[in-house]
Computed example of a mutant assay.
Amino acid sequence: MKRAFYYLILILALIVMAAFAIANKQWIAEDVGFSYDPSTPGAEATTLHLPMFLILFGVLAIGMLLGGIIVWLKQGRFRRAARVAQVEVERHRNELDRLRSQTAPAGEARSSQTALPSSVPF
């Protein structure tokens, strides 16, 4: 399901980029008309006149933002697994501390308890 959503977003982004490329075919100039409507690229109502570097920096910023959001969403399962593992480690540490405090008398050295039995497959 996630893969289909990803491809749907990718196809929509490609369609939008193709429409902007068709509507803005002029060469790099000092002042560029940026048209929102690919069917009538010269219409003043749908054209924004900006220097080309502003358009390029805007596209770069939007691309970086969208890329960061996509990466953040794709790595969500790993962050969730790390949180679950951290909670489990803390739970086991607390249980180990509780068991050690129950079995060891106060003041006794724990050197005999730290050795693993020979049946452990480590």
Score class of each variant (00 low, 15 high):
Ser39Leu: 15
Thr40Cys: 05
Thr40Arg: 14
Ser39His: 09
Leu116Tyr: 12
His92Phe: 08
Gly58Ser: 03
Gln113Asp: 13
Lys74Phe: 03
Ser119Val: 11
Ala13Cys: 14
Ala104Met: 14
Gly76Phe: 01
Leu10Phe: 09
Lys25Gly: 15
Leu60Phe: 09
Leu10Glu: 08
Tyr6Lys: 13
Ala106Pro: 07
Arg98Ile: 01
Trp72Pro: 00
Leu48Asn: 11
Ala19Asn: 15
Ala19Gln: 15
Ser112Ala: 14
Thr46His: 04
Val120Gln: 04
Ala109Leu: 10
Arg91Glu: 12
Leu12Cys: 13
Phe20Thr: 00
Ala104Cys: 12
Gln113Lys: 11
Asn24Lys: 01
Ala104Ser: 12
Met1Cys: 05
Leu116Met: 13
Pro117Cys: 02
Pro38Gly: 02
Val89Ile: 14
Leu14Ala: 15
Thr40Gln: 14
Glu44Pro: 10
Leu60Thr: 07
Ser111Asp: 15
Ala82Asp: 08
Met64Lys: 04
Pro51Gln: 08
Pro41Val: 02
Pro41Phe: 01
Glu95Thr: 09
Ala18Met: 10
Glu95Leu: 13
Asp37Pro: 00
Ser111Leu: 10
Lys25Trp: 14
Ala29Tyr: 00
Arg100Val: 10
Phe122Ala: 12
Gly76Cys: 01
Arg91Gln: 11
Met64Cys: 13
Ala109Asn: 13
Arg80Gly: 00
Arg110Ala: 10
Arg98Ala: 11
Gln26Thr: 11
Thr103Glu: 14
Ala4Gly: 01
Gly67Pro: 00
Glu88Met: 08
Arg110Trp: 06
Lys2Ser: 04
Glu44His: 06
Gly107Cys: 05
Arg80Gln: 08
Ala21Ile: 14
Lys2Trp: 04
Ser101Lys: 15
Pro105His: 06
Leu48Glu: 09
Asp37Trp: 12
Tyr6Glu: 06
Val84Met: 05
Lys74Ile: 02
Gln113Leu: 15
Leu116Ser: 12
Leu65Ala: 09
Ile11Val: 12
Ala106Gln: 08
Ser101Asp: 15
Ile69Met: 12
Ser35Asn: 15
Leu14Gly: 10
Asp97Gly: 12
Ala109Glu: 09
Leu14Trp: 06
Leu10Asp: 07
Ser119Arg: 11
Pro121Lys: 06
Pro51His: 07
Phe5Arg: 13
Ala61Val: 07
Gly67Ile: 03
Leu54Thr: 04
Tyr7Asp: 08
Tyr36Asn: 07
Ile62Ser: 05
Trp72Tyr: 10
Gln113Cys: 02
Arg83Met: 03
Gly67Trp: 04
Arg110Phe: 04
Asp97Ile: 06
Thr40Trp: 07
Thr47Trp: 01
Gln86Arg: 11
His92Asn: 09
Arg100Gln: 12
Pro41Ser: 09
Ser101Met: 13
Ala13Val: 14
Glu44Cys: 02
Arg98Asn: 05
Pro51Thr: 01
Glu90Tyr: 05
Gly58Cys: 04
Asn94Glu: 08
Gly33His: 02
Met52His: 11
Val32Gly: 00
Ser112Trp: 07
Ile11Thr: 12
Phe122Trp: 13
Gly42Ile: 02
Ala29Met: 10
Arg83Lys: 05
Glu30Asp: 15
Pro105Asp: 05
Phe20Ala: 09
Ala109Ser: 15
Ala45Arg: 07
Ala115Leu: 10
Asp37Thr: 09
Leu12Ser: 13
Ser39Asp: 05
Phe78Val: 11
